[in-house]
Amino acid sequence: MEIRYPATFEPQDGGGFFVQFVDLPDTFTEGATLEEAQFNASEALSAMLGFKLDAGEAIAPPTAGAAGAQYIAPDAKTQAAYLIRQARADRSLSELARALETSWPAARKLEDPKHWPSLRQLERAAAALGKRLVLSLE
């Protein structure tokens, strides 16, 4: 599963761009150049998804094929936490911890967007959840 959220980039009269996410209307930013606006959009998306993960809030899935939108990815830590949360679905953290043969706090760290899990931890968690870890570089 790829985590990319659609965002609109509106040129501003005085220059620069205003960015707002289609699926997260309370998440927006700006930038003096398109490149800066894209960078800031990734930062804003990472912060909002991280906040929602920390608070245990539901996160709307990204809309596919949003016309006129650019698709933005959050940072790697946030993507990892989001993907583990999505793959776990209705299973408890205790079930995941038992499957990984680890403690509940260690399993919880996998869903913490401030934690840098190792590839080995992510691979083991994916396998325990019946998934496969796939990496890509842009």
Rank of each mutant, 00 (worst) to 15 (best):
3 I>Y: 00
4 R>F: 04
8 T>P: 01
9 F>L: 12
12 Q>H: 10
13 D>N: 11
17 F>Q: 04
17 F>N: 02
17 F>E: 01
18 F>H: 13
19 V>T: 04
20 Q>F: 07
20 Q>G: 03
20 Q>S: 13
22 V>A: 11
24 L>D: 10
25 P>K: 07
30 E>F: 10
30 E>D: 13
32 A>C: 02
33 T>D: 08
33 T>P: 04
33 T>A: 09
34 L>I: 14
36 E>A: 10
37 A>K: 01
37 A>C: 06
39 F>D: 01
40 N>M: 11
43 E>R: 09
44 A>G: 05
50 G>N: 08
54 D>C: 06
55 A>V: 06
56 G>M: 07
58 A>T: 13
62 P>F: 03
62 P>S: 06
62 P>Y: 01
64 A>E: 15
65 G>H: 09
67 A>V: 12
67 A>E: 14
67 A>L: 12
70 Q>N: 10
70 Q>H: 11
70 Q>F: 14
70 Q>M: 15
70 Q>G: 05
75 D>S: 10
76 A>C: 08
76 A>W: 09
77 K>N: 13
77 K>P: 01
78 T>K: 03
81 A>G: 09
84 I>H: 07
86 Q>L: 13
87 A>Q: 07
88 R>S: 08
91 R>M: 14
91 R>Y: 09
92 S>N: 08
92 S>E: 09
92 S>P: 08
93 L>D: 02
93 L>V: 11
94 S>C: 05
94 S>R: 13
94 S>E: 12
95 E>Y: 05
96 L>T: 05
97 A>T: 06
102 T>H: 07
103 S>W: 04
103 S>P: 06
106 A>S: 13
107 A>D: 03
108 R>P: 00
110 L>T: 06
110 L>Q: 00
114 K>V: 04
114 K>R: 15
115 H>W: 13
119 L>H: 05
122 L>Q: 06
125 A>Q: 02
125 A>C: 10
126 A>W: 04
127 A>F: 08
131 K>T: 00
133 L>D: 07
134 V>F: 02
